[in-house]
Nucleic acid binder design. Structure first.
Lengths: 137, 137
DNA sequence: CCTTGACCTCAAGTTTACTTGAAGTGGCAC
DNA sequence: GTGCCACTTCAAGTAAACTTGAGGTCAAGG
């Protein structure tokens, strides 16, 4: 496969060039070289960007993502990964409660949703997950 | 029930007073009055804060949250709520993929995770949900 | 009555994740 | 060879969600 120009990467991923430079600066992706001043990327950067997008969509910070799938290094702390996975489980439950709450709210005729017992129950349920996780800032 | 002092609300919810003032300024919560300068909150503010926390944990912006569960107004656009619910569904799927990916990564012996076919498959799967949702900025 | 300190306001600072703009460089089509 | 313009760097700007600090107020305990 051929190396990719920054604009090529941008085109294929939808991530703006400025963001790609920013990510490189932050150590999330790496150019394999330069042609003159211009960065050259290995096609694998597309995978990395996919991964980064996924992480972001999951509510992680760039620094978290870097931590999890470190530099280009092979050292991924398994404990950290497990902890993150558990964190995500809680987040999923919260999202499910939120979703149910919203769906109910869309149907429920109560004046204020806080007056609806079903809604309040869902909220309490979700509230129980005392996950003050910094994963979703 | 008695009205609550800002510090009382802070104590019971864990939300700092400064944040409570900020939320009030943004119209997410409302003091029912003042004793001198000091805000007085109805105990129902605890429910609202619960709801706000839930929304935040689900990746919504404060402005989204305000939109969904508007001021103290009863006007909640059901279509908006449904759309949000659908958005959340996609987010949940992404989180599930992320979770599985992490769990797998915690076990998989591959040098780089990108070299692991299982991992890549999970990523592609998650990537398919082209949810460039602004719900999780 | 008088002090105390928790609360107030308002402005400015912080962090995260970028974007924008100015000024420079050099690959490549002609 | 030479000029265009996509690329470069670096500094500064933006938005969201708060936090911090200075200076002021006033309800309550002694």
């Amino acid at each position: 496969m051929k190396d990719l120009d920054i604009s090529e990467v941008a085109k294929r991923t939808g991530v703006p060039a400025s963001t790609l430079r920013y990510y490189e600066e932050k150590g999330l992706i790496h150019a394999i070289g330069r042609r003159g001043l211009r960065r050259l990327f290995d096609p694998s950067v597309l995978d990395w960007l996919n991964l980064i997008a996924l992480g972001k969509a999951s509510g992680f910070r760039l620094s978290d993502i870097q931590q999890m799938f470190g530099k280009d290094g092979p050292h991924i702390d398994r404990d950290t990964l497990m902890k993150k996975a558990v964190e995500i489980e809680g987040q999923i439950r919260q999202l499910q409660a939120m979703r149910e709450g919203l769906l109910h709210a869309a149907k429920c005729p109560a004046e204020s949703h806080l007056e609806c017992e079903t809604f309040r129950k869902l909220m309490r349920l979700a509230g129980k997950q005392q996950l003050r996780s910094k994963a979703a800032p």
